[in-house]
């Protein structure tokens, strides 16, 4: 079996054993709760918002949690002296994170399609979730590298939320209305994320879609290279006993 597959199966098994799987199902149920409480039958407006929050913040958390578990119990040391490529190791966590986001999407979409009305293309949503979650898993690595422990990671994630996620969301749903703010937010990855998710409703302009795809696509490649490069340094730090 190729090492990538061994790692992947191992990662999935550990998600179960460390109750991370359970936690993400609970979060999905929470989102369903929100949908349930929404009085309007057509949830095309609110649905992408939930997916947006999930595939950004949960992606960051998932990567951080697994790395901190490995750091704490020392298994990261062991992984570092096996023939695993760091590229495989990192990609693996991204793949698992994206998969988890997809599972949440499927659960929510099924609920929405059965019990509510939703007018969005599933394939469009799927594509968007893959890119958004991939990008944010990589953000998760960078934030983890800069955090001493899990609490520090939470704080860093809060910062990310307040600087990028929340303003983007508020502007998108027109609670903030300001031309300059709107312009500036095009620099935020979360803007690209929200555009892409809402694009599945079919009313987004082409140039915006192209902008979002390019931002997240190229961004993911660049981020991955940075994450790969900085991993060594992080590993040295980690090997201090």
């Amino acid at each position: 079996m190729p090492n990538f597959l061994v790692l992947l199966l191992g990662e999935i098994k550990r998600l179960q054993r460390y109750n991370i799987m359970t936690a993400s199902v609970v979060v999905a149920l929470l989102w369903i709760g929100v949908l349930y409480l929404t009085e309007i039958p057509d949830i095309t407006f609110i649905f992408p918002m939930l997916i947006y929050v999930d595939s950004t913040s949960m992606a960051i958390l998932l990567v951080g949690v697994t790395i901190f578990f490995e750091k704490q119990e020392g298994s990261l040391h062991t992984l570092l002296v096996t023939p695993i490529n760091k590229k495989d190791y990192l990609l693996n966590k991204s793949v698992v994170t994206v998969a988890t986001s997809i599972v949440t999407l499927v659960i929510l979409y099924l609920y929405a399609a059965i019990f509510k009305e939703i007018d969005m293309s599933f394939t469009g949503l799927l594509g968007a979730v893959i890119l958004v979650s991939l990008f944010h898993s990589l953000v998760g690595f960078l934030l983890t590298y800069r955090s001493r422990d899990f609490t520090a990671l939470l704080i860093n994630m809060m910062k990310y939320m307040f600087i990028f996620m929340i303003p983007t969301l508020l502007e998108y749903i027109r609670i903030i209305q300001h031309d300059l703010v709107e312009m500036i937010l095009y620099l935020a990855p979360t803007k690209a994320a929200i555009i892409l998710l809402y694009a599945a409703a079919g009313e987004t302009e082409l140039w915006e879609i192209i902008y979002a795809l390019t931002y997240l696509g190229v961004g993911s490649i660049v981020l991955f290279m940075v994450v790969l490069k900085k991993f060594e340094q992080f590993a040295v730090q980690e090997s201090g006993v």
Binding site: K13, R14, R17, E73, G74, S75, H77, T78
Partner: peptide, 11 residues
């Protein structure tokens, strides 16, 4: 072989 614990503790 390390001097510290190095296993997946929940496996």
């Amino acid at each position: 072989g390390f001097e510290v614990p190095v296993h997946f503790s929940k496996l």
